[in-house]
Design a protein around this nucleic acid. Structure first.
Length: 570
RNA sequence: UGGGGUGUCGCCAAGUGGUUAAGGCAGCGGUUUUUGGGGCCGCUAUACGAAGGUUCGAAUCCUUCCACCCCAACCA
């Protein structure tokens, strides 16, 4: 008993979300024998963190119930889709740690079957070829408050429809000239049921089927049927498809699928200070407002990866925000908490001085240097230690010195003694200034007896600072990222028309001449680390040998900044 | 002629007629600390969109109302 409690002490109290409860019920009632889910991305953009919710749900659920998950590219619109997106999507899902095995499918694999089924519906008298133009179709559809009007082509004979549909497939019609529609109910309160389109004519090259087809199925006609073909049991999608559910069931019923899949909708993930729509992300990319789909400021999987986020952190966020039906916007702070939690445990510590201030240790033997032992990760003793060079010329962080410090400032100041991490206590004797009164150098003395960071006489210091030996330092570039937008929801009505005006002009700060400890030169692109006292950083792919570039993933929590803020308010 | 959904702490989110209304994030105290990090301890909704009602008992049931989201692409 006691063991159980302690073992689960750090686990969130878990209660099953409504989808898992439904699966339990479905299995208990014998509706389904097992669980088969699918993740059905359209290859027209990069995956973002919102998709991760759907991915984690579908893959995670199946795994929990001993089932499997299919990856199915929903490639029914050749105009917007492309193979390059297929590749990035596969890479991102794999990186997140999910495996679809040999269950890789394309909706286009089913075009022939879908065509045959469409013929079946025509034969049943519940589908017809319609010669109305897109404008006319819209007019005949009515509005949410008014019933629609039947198409004049609605009651043509089965033979006529069959012949016409064959002509559609054979290229006998131009784009937009005709459609195949389901014959349902033009006055249905659910707009999706007003004789929805099943096929449209598109003389376009498809990335998978080439020029084989000139008619392409619409989402509603393709999706549920593809689910049925694959034996999907639980088809999970986001809330905006709730209205499509009735149609999803209608098609399956018409086709008399023996054990039809069921669609269940959940709320998509929204996050503050960003946008999550593929259309908006595409706009940011195409207008060059960010560096590409993998810009570290973007909520895309590839952007987060480059920023230094780990699959663990992303999945932790998804787990902790849960699955429900209420539209929600999760605070970006929760994502930051998730990555800090993971990186605190796994990221090796390093010392790097972002804004260097030169320091001369006046009583340190000139030309000499020595190596000091530093702990790689205080959270994991097994990660061991490394040696860091120390000398009489160092760099300290500019903001760690104040000539005239306020009450709560513990760091270096004239006459004050502080500890250099893993090294010595130093005391500041003089601040050298330039003609403008700017402090350009500090002259300090060190206490050789404090080697390693403890004073034999037991005296204490209030601060421990990070530092880098000047002659041993690696010159680096650091990219400090901040939120992409200045407002929580850039798409809110009040900004609607020019949401781009809410972009944060300071979302990227490039620091050059950053001084890092020598071991930083050994890191590889994609490696995470913590710059002590500053934050978590990830080596960028733009790094060159001897010229590393680091992306700031997230800062450390900073209670000094809070104190300063409070003081400022007063 | 409208229909479909959703409303529980600043942000997520449990709760399924009887609980002191979980938990996480954020916040606030304290403690520990060679990262002002992290850890640990504690505090933080008499209140469940609102108003009525049913009941010994309601966030949970009923009624009415309010707010927000989705649907009128040959997008998904």
């Amino acid at each position: 008993m006691a063991d159980d409690t302690s073992k689960n002490a750090n686990e969130p109290s878990v209660s099953k979300d409504f989808i898992r409860q439904k699966v339990d019920a479905d299995l208990a009632s014998g509706k389904y024998d097992g669980v088969v889910t699918r993740f059905p991305p359209e290859p027209n953009g990069y995956l973002h963190i919102g998709h991760t919710k759907a991915i984690a749900l579908s893959f995670g659920l199946a795994k929990e119930y001993g089932g499997v998950t299919h990856l199915r590219f929903d490639d029914t619109n050749p105009l917007t889709e492309d193979t390059s997106y297929v590749e990035s999507i596969e890479e991102d899902i794999r990186w997140l740690g999910y495996d679809w095995g040999d269950r890789l499918h394309y909706t286009s694999d089913y075009f022939e079957q879908l065509y045959d089924w469409a013929v079946k519906l025509i034969e049943k008298g519940v589908a017809y070829v319609c010669h109305l133009s897109d404008e006319e179709i819209r007019e005949y559809r009515g509005t949410v408050k008014e019933a629609g009007v039947d198409s004049p082509y609605r009651d043509r004979s089965v033979e006529e429809n069959l012949a016409d549909f064959a002509k559609m497939r054979d290229g006998g019609y131009k784009d937009g000239e005709v459609t195949l529609r389901a014959k349902i109910d033009m006055s249905n309160a659910n707009m999706k049921m007003r004789d929805p389109l099943m096929y449209r004519v598109r003389h376009a090259h498809h990335h998978n089927t080439g020029d084989k087809w000139c008619i392409y199925p619409m989402y509603d006609w393709a999706h549920g049927q593809s689910d049925a073909i694959e034996g999907i049991t639980h088809s999970l999608c986001t809330l905006e498809f709730e209205n499509n559910n009735e149609l999803y069931r209608w098609f399956l019923e018409q086709l008399e699928v023996p054990t039809p899949p069921e669609q269940t909708e959940f709320a998509r993930l929204g996050m503050t200070y960003t946008v999550m729509s593929k259309r908006k992300l595409l706009e940011l990319v195409e207008k060059g407002l960010v560096g590409g789909w993998d810009d570290p400021r973007l909520p895309t999987i590839s952007g987060l990866r480059r920023r230094g986020y780990t699959p663990t952190a992303i999945k932790t966020l998804i787990e902790r925000t849960g699955i429900a039906k209420a539209n929600s916007t999760v605070d970006m702070g929760m994502l930051e908490w998730a990555i800090r939690e993971d990186l605190n445990y796994i990221a090796p510590r390093k010392m790097a001085v972002l804004h260097p201030l030169k320091v001369t240790i006046t009583n340190y033997p000139e030309g000499q240097s020595e190596e000091l032992e530093a702990i790689n990760n205080p959270e994991r003793a097994e990660d061991g230690t490394r040696m860091v060079p120390f000398s009489g010329e160092l760099y300290l962080e500019r903001e760690d010195f104040m000539e005239d410090p306020p009450r709560k400032f513990f760091r270096l100041a004239p006459g004050r003694e502080v500890r250099l991490r893993y090294a010595f206590f130093i005391t500041c004797n003089e601040a050298v200034k330039d003609d403008n009164g700017e402090v350009i150098e500090l002259k300090c003395t060190y206490d050789p007896a404090t080697r390693g960071g403890d004073a034999p006489d037991g005296r204490k210091v209030k601060a421990t600072l990070h530092w880098v030996s000047a002659n041993h330092a690696v010159d680096m570039e650091v990219r400090n990222y901040d939120r992409l937008f200045n407002v929580e929801n850039p798409l809110e009505a009040q900004y609607k028309d020019d949401w781009l005006q809410t972009l944060n002009p300071d979302s990227l700060e490039v620091l050059t001449g950053v001084k890092g400890e020598p071991s930083l030169a050994e890191m590889k692109a994609g490696d995470n680390c913590q710059f002590e006292r500053k934050g978590y950083f990830c080596m960028d792919q733009d790094s060159k040998p001897g010229a590393p570039v680091f992306n700031r993933t997230v800062t450390l929590r900073d209670s000094w900044a809070k104190i300063q803020k409070k003081g400022g308010k007063k």
